[in-house]
């Protein structure tokens, strides 16, 4: 099993943190992981992204050409990564901030009102948690909710750990949203 996941959004939407959470959770399950942030000449307000590889085998390169999963938290990220998703891959996209539905039909597309769900829970900054929650449901063999919970304690700095329960709650809303989408398909 190898998943090559790109998580992308605005700077500040927590894409690097989301990637790190997945990595730590998968690492604790005994899987091989790599995480690399994009560090091109990114502009303020532009896209930030990270590439996460989770595998049962050694990981040759942390750089992902054709991701198996893309989480796009804003419009520019969708534009950038949609063409690169592999055939039959998965796209999780933030419908709250992306007005036009993605044009490809050769992949599994899951719209999430990620920012709206986050706002409804009192913060605009947890769209990343909604998406990770959904991913947990859509890729059930990747990492468990329990391992993500442990990873939160490990990854989040002590200063921000007070938000862990809120993050977890929003994560499970994302999980349930994905559950509904799967049930309706």
């Amino acid at each position: 099993m190898t998943e090559e996941i790109v998580i992308a959004g605005f700077g500040g939407q927590g894409v690097l943190l989301a990637g790190k959470l997945l990595c730590v959770a998968a690492m604790r399950r005994g899987l091989q992981v790599s995480h690399i942030p994009s560090y091109g000449a990114e502009m303020r307000g532009g896209t930030a992204n990270c590439s996460v590889v989770i595998s049962t085998e050694d990981i040759p390169s942390p750089v992902i050409e054709c991701p198996s999963v893309v989480i796009a938290l804003n419009g520019p990220s969708l534009v950038k990564f949609l063409p690169r998703i592999r055939l039959g891959g998965m796209l999780i996209w933030n419908r709250s901030l992306i007005a036009i539905a993605p044009s490809r039909s050769d992949l599994f597309s899951f719209p999430l009102d990620a920012t709206d769900i986050s706002l409804a829970n009192g913060t605009e900054r947890a769209a990343n948690m909604v998406a990770i929650g959904a991913l947990l449901r859509l890729k059930p063999n990747l990492v468990s909710m329990k391992s993500i919970e442990a990873a939160l304690d490990e990854v989040i700095s002590s200063r921000n750990r007070k938000y862990n329960s809120l993050n977890l709650r929003i994560l499970s809303v994302g999980y349930e949203m994905a559950e509904k989408i799967v049930a309706n398909k």
Partner: peptide, 9 residues
């Protein structure tokens, strides 16, 4: 730069 930037266990 790839080895420097990537996180691994």
């Amino acid at each position: 730069g790839y080895l420097g930037q990537m996180s691994e266990p």
